[in-house]
């Protein structure tokens, strides 16, 4: 099992608040790692540390990608994305007034080159690059089942479709690691099942590594290969789903001490 991201004693403090405290774990290549914990446990903060939105107060986050290995600590979000990490957001952050297709086309930004002069003069190279962006964006929309919604504005899509569009947009950057922040939040049971199938498909067909924050326990237990549990900013358990589900600390954190 090869590690893709290694977190070593990562802490993030906001003033006196210790949102994330000395967390160490490894995201292994090709696996789906579930990140769970009660509200306010520090899951999204940890996500933001990995993707460059926050700088960790201390500790190190090491990227061991196919092309190069480096520390993620000091990188800006766009540099992190260029390394091969792509994320979705807990509260949907689509480009609301662009069409679904254009949202995905924006995701192709780092896979294309055209600059200012290219945009104005449109030489053959830029034209074919633009065609390439469009056809790849269409294919990715098809992958998440939104092919027929390509022309609709992102803000006019149904909630479940918006969630899938966020995933499509992240896929367009061609990541090695996909970070999904509560992808099933607000979905109905049948949409959640579709999402389950989609995530499995991404893992198996595209051989993506996935880090997933989720509150839907059925979904997490079902698809995760590894689970990491946070509570009050600290790591309280990690291991395969079956082990974590029986862990005393986890039951205590979710249900209270008396259920142990």
């Amino acid at each position: 099992m090869t590690p893709l991201v290694v977190l070593d004693r990562v802490s993030k403090h906001f003033g006196g608040l210790k949102a994330v405290e000395r967390i160490s774990f490894t995201i292994n290549q090709g696996l789906i790692t579930g990140l769970i914990g009660p509200n306010g446990a520090g899951k999204t903060t940890l996500f933001n540390c990995i993707t460059g939105m926050y700088q960790p107060t201390s500790g190190s986050i090491t990227w061991c990608g196919a092309e190069k290995s480096c520390l993620l600590n000091r990188l800006k979000p766009h540099q992190v994305t260029r390394l091969g990490l792509a994320r979705t957001f807990q509260n949907i952050r689509l480009f609301a007034n662009m069409t679904a297709l254009e949202n995905v086309m924006v995701g192709r930004h780092i896979q294309s080159r055209a600059g200012i002069l290219g945009a104005i003069f449109k030489p053959a190279r830029v034209r074919s690059e633009e065609q390439e962006i469009i056809s790849q964006a269409r294919r990715i929309l098809g992958l998440v089942g939104l092919a027929d919604r390509a022309g609709g504005l992102a803000k006019n899509l149904a909630y479940g479709e918006q969630r899938r569009l966020e995933i499509a947009r992240a896929l367009a950057t061609e990541p090695q690691l996909l970070l999904l922040d509560e992808p099933a939040a607000g979905l109905n049971p049948s949409e959640t099942e579709d999402l389950d199938a989609l995530i499995k498909k991404l893992q198996q067909e595209l051989r993506l590594t996935i880090l997933l924050i989720e509150h839907d326990m059925k979904l997490v237990m079902n698809i995760s290969d590894e689970i990491v549990v946070l509570d009050h900013g600290e790591l309280i358990a990690q291991g395969p789903p079956a082990v974590v589900a029986r862990d005393r600390h986890v039951i205590a954190a979710y249900l209270g001490e008396e259920f142990c």
Partner: peptide, 20 residues
Amino acid sequence: RLGRAWIAMREDETACAAMG
């Protein structure tokens, strides 16, 4: 490509940075 990046930035700067 540049124009789309501008519009994406107008719509949501954080998400835009997350797109690389």
